[in-house]
Write a protein that binds this DNA or RNA. Structure first.
Lengths: 243, 243
DNA sequence: AAGTGGTCTAGACCACGGC
DNA sequence: CCGTGGTCTAGACCACTTG
């Protein structure tokens, strides 16, 4: 296996192993090669192999038993989200076995309300960008996402923003900001008239409401988002490793 | 009879640093000592310090900036749950600033329905234990939790189970099983009559419904649980580090 | 007893940011 | 430039499970 320089060796090992799990070379429930064998086979140190295995274990792909071996988790296919991407609707839709697509509804500029200013550390009335998008699983609308970003972070004209991009890439490309961490508030709500127009179904039913705040490396909020999420159409199912 | 296993050095370092963050010795937003300084100060290798710092970073307590330093996250107080304990109601209630208590409602033995048998890998009609509990934040009921465990795993009389214990400890003490990983399904639902009796509030409102499956190291399900969760009384707010 | 994963060390070099 | 965190190595010993 050829090692390139761009990504870290540990991440490449991680990807190699994950691919072998996904391709069924390492079968669900079966024992994987030992750390020493992987170390020899891939030509890297055991510590590097362990870094990769630790990431796979944290995401629930493998189980490690001291004195025994490392086993492929049999239940990974029942999972649609992992710890690192609870907020990632595109991966969530793919994890449910559907084809994702994004329809930008509007990109507007307007002054912040009190609530928005508080969440973003702005003054009331400071200008912000409101990006409103609809996420589809195959042809079914499953999520309505509103994102609010301070206008002061943007260096380019508002019109140049491609509303189809991943929020991570929007930050990278147009705002030159990296996301350091995310705080998500998970709530339940009765479906509103607008969401009901998009999602359909019964009118009094309940849906999930995710409040997401994105923070940069400087500890300051980059953006705030509200996602309405039709949990009857899309399962939000995540795996957590114990310890 | 029980040997006290000393925790790993890395975990001890983790606890020391977390305590200093909680006690305000390392202030929110401020820069922590460098890895080398911590390594010297604590008398451990830099690799061990890094293991501890990695755990703190994964749980969102600190931010690490290459070429600069390690900073304490300013927003940890806004968070009620961390990635490792989304399912832990006791910690969740404490994270919201309330005092948790548990009221066992019933511990029964009965045959599994088709749905329960499927979730637990049993045959329909196999006996299981149904543990039903109510969780309080201060004096307010906030969660109704139903847990289903195969009777075959239990070596002791049903009556000996202490319904006030943490589910982790129940497994450890009465079933001699360790939890390896957990799959959680997060859904939204209109409050049912029974939950409404406990939680109060409007009758048509929505609450969160968490379906939790606990798995052991052997990759087989240990237990299945349904948690009804009053998200108007308790915030489910979690932090995720970005990679 | 042999082999596995778990922990820890000491040292090296790199990439990046601030001064 | 220097100090920071990021990566990787080689080796050692321990704790545990299995045959």
């Amino acid at each position: 296996m050829r090692i390139l320089q761009s990504k870290s060796i540990a991440n490449q090992v991680d990807e190699i192993l994950l691919e072998k799990i996904r391709d069924g070379i390492y079968l669900p429930g079966s024992r994987m090669p030992s750390e020493s064998e992987l170390s020899d086979e891939l030509g890297v140190s055991r510590a590097t192999v362990r870094t990769a295995l630790a990431k796979l274990a944290a995401n629930g792909f493998i189980l490690r038993k001291q004195g025994d071996g490392t086993y492929v988790n049999m239940h990974i296919h029942e999972v649609s989200a992992h710890l690192g991407n609870l907020w990632d609707l595109v991966q969530l839709i793919e994890g449910n076995g559907h084809t994702p697509s994004i329809q930008p509804l509007s990109i507007e500029q307007r002054p912040a309300t009190e609530k928005e200013a508080l969440a973003l550390g702005l003054e009331v009335g400071d200008e912000l960008i409101n990006l409103r998008r609809l996420f589809f699983a195959d042809q079914q609308a499953v999520s309505l996402a509103d994102n609010f970003i301070p206008l002061s972070l943007l260096n380019e004209p508002l019109e140049s923003i491609d509303g189809q991009l991943h929020i991570r890439d929007i930050f990278h490309k147009y705002f030159h900001q990296e996301i350091a961490f995310i705080i998500t508030d998970i709530r339940s709500t009765v479906i509103g008239t607008e969401a009901h127009k998009f999602f359909g179904g019964e009118s009094g039913r309940s849906i999930l409401e995710l409040h997401i705040t994105f923070y940069g490396k400087n500890n300051l909020p980059l953006a705030f988002g509200i996602n309405y999420f039709d949990d009857s159409a899309l399962r939000l199912s995540l795996v957590q490793a114990w310890n």
